[in-house]
């Protein structure tokens, strides 16, 4: 791959990703509305897509306020971390054969490392805000992350065992015959749950829970700093969806009447839609329930899954 091509891919991926994340504002609002028997934003532009533009403009023109009681530099740093860490995770995702920013052989580990960096933005944002709600949100975020980080990693180990590689390209290739969702259904479900928790989306939006914490860790944020958190969340959804597609649903693989990238995008949007459907239908569990559910139930299941997968893998090779 030449350097120009490489730069092109990087820029292209960045461009598409950021647009998807922004576009998700509209997608989410429309879908939520439709599922709630409403129409949603349909005034600005065709089908209301320009609401994205309107929202962004609004965010830019809002007063970019830093509370006088906040820790200024940390306060500014926090929203940058969330976007940065999520975007870095995309580095290892193979969108189609040849379209990958860095084909690392430790792809999964890199993804896990990067996505867990995201918690820093929550903790730092909550801390720097110097506000009790923000701090509570940050603490919840931290404990939720620690809990679900573990299962997320463990749930992927089954896939790694079956494919024998940490390289995501190899994992996709290993699903040529059978998607891992068939061989690793438990791993998929747990990864999905952990992914929701990781992106703190509803129903697991414990760190920001509006009805309890008035917005949690980003209560004091406004303007484009808040916008960064906002975009970070949508990027997170895209990332987790892309990972699910890559790890369990054969990535770009699909019948040849469509190009591989198209298959990837179709599968990606299916899971993004699923995320939004979740938000539309499920209520938020209590904080303590979420944590005890993680440690007491999921951990056991995921370990069992790992053992059984390992045993079967050994037996098959046996």
């Amino acid at each position: 791959m030449s350097a120009t091509e490489h730069i092109l891919i990087v820029v292209g991926v960045l461009f598409v990703l950021l647009n998807i994340a922004a576009g998700l504002i509209w997608v989410e609002r429309r879908l939520l509305a439709l599922w709630q028997d409403r129409l949603g934003p349909n005034r600005a532009g065709p089908l209301g897509v320009l609401i994205v533009l309107a929202d962004t403009l609004k965010l830019f023109f809002k007063e970019d306020w830093i509370p006088p009681f906040a820790d200024k530099w940390v306060f500014i740093l926090a929203p940058a971390i969330v976007v940065g860490s999520v975007l870095l995770s995309f580095v290892v995702i193979p969108f189609a054969p040849g379209i990958v920013v860095a084909d690392l052989n430790i792809g999964i580990l890199f993804f896990l490392a990067m996505s867990s960096l995201g918690v820093y933005s929550i903790v730092l944002g909550g801390w720097a805000s110097n506000n009790k709600y923000a701090l509570l949100g940050a603490l919840r975020g931290a404990s939720q992350m620690i809990a679900y980080e573990v299962f997320m990693g463990l749930s992927l180990m089954g896939v790694v065992m079956l494919s024998g590689s940490f390289n995501l390209g190899d994992i996709v290739a290993a699903q040529q015959n059978l998607w891992f969702v068939v061989t690793q259904p438990v791993g998929f479900v747990i990864f999905f749950i952990a992914g929701i928790a990781e992106t703190h989306r509803l129903p697991f939006d414990i760190p920001e829970a509006e009805s309890e914490l008035i917005a949690g860790y980003h209560a004091e944020y406004s303007g484009m700093k808040f916008g960064m958190f906002f975009i970070g969340e949508y990027l997170g959804i895209t990332l987790i969806s892309a990972m699910i597609v890559t790890l369990f649903f054969g990535g770009w693989l699909g019948p040849a009447f469509l190009p591989p990238l198209a298959w990837f995008v179709i599968k990606l949007f299916f899971f993004i839609g699923l995320f939004i459907l979740l938000r539309a239908s499920l209520p938020r569990p209590r904080y303590d329930q979420l944590i005890s559910y993680g440690w007491k139930i999921i951990l056991a299941i995921v370990l069992a899954n790992l053992l059984i997968t390992g045993a079967i893998a050994l037996w098959l090779r046996g």
Binding site: L34, W35, D37, S281
Partner: peptide
């Protein structure tokens, strides 16, 4: 029941919308 909920919510995609387009 969670899955059923999600399915039922999904089905609302095809329901008549109550929005009055003032």
């Amino acid at each position: 029941s969670h899955l059923r909920t999600m399915w039922l919510v999904f089905l609302h995609l095809f329901k008549k919308k109550v929005t009055i387009e003032y």
